[in-house]
Design a binder for these strands. Sequence first.
DNA 1: ATGCCCAGCCATGCTGGA
Length: 259
Amino acid sequence: MKIATFNINGIKARLPALLDWLDEARPDVAVLQEIKSVDAAFPRDPFEERGYNVETHGQKSFNGVAILSRLPLEDVTRGLPGDEGDEQARWIEATVIGERAVRVCGLYLPNGNPAPGPKFDYKLDWMSRLQTRARALLDSEEPAVMAGDYNIIPQDEDAARPEAWARDALALPEARSAFRRILNLGFTDAFRAQTHSGGHYSFWDYQAGAWNRNDGIRIDHVLLTPQAADLMTDCWIDPGLRGREKPSDHVPVWVELEA
DNA sequence: ATGCCCAGCCATGCTGGA
């Protein structure tokens, strides 16, 4: 089972590039972030024509997540538990039925800038709720994957210019430690388990020629429960998409499971 | 110190992103 997470930065703007990528790369499961569309306006047809089941959790203009899967999906849920008043569409889950059943969670973690401030408080609150859900996934003792745009630069080696991010919500100590608290429950950062060196990025700003200067950051992550980590055979980033026509500012991060 | 670029919107300048 090949799973990719991809922040597409708008389904309307990215549809041709996304379809080209799906046709070439053929993920079994793709979790998408920042669809920036309500569910009713999501263009399901081109995905269904390609054999993908489509589950979305969108909102107008901002945020929004989706799961595309060529394998059957069961028990789809939307929204991160823990705050009934949270209107922001940032979390979706489904069980993917492959050779093994894998619980796949797609997430778009709040950016949190400017920090300090209410947006950073919301980010930390959201991460606290994520930790609660992560603990429940561990308690299930089943293979589970939490994949998406975490908006966290875990360590300085995950940024080309760490000093430029030192006071940013993506790298502040409070944000990093909230991310580590989730890892410390017993999750594996799939990419870091596969590749120990720094200098691997999943996002390059549109501004100031960041891509051409390889001025990137690694903020899209795949976290695995121990049962999922046991099944992992590979994990990689596909940076090439960033150099194409009309790209997203993020690129896909992949994990392959024996499932 | 600030904007750069990009997407979306009952828009033609603003918010949000990271």
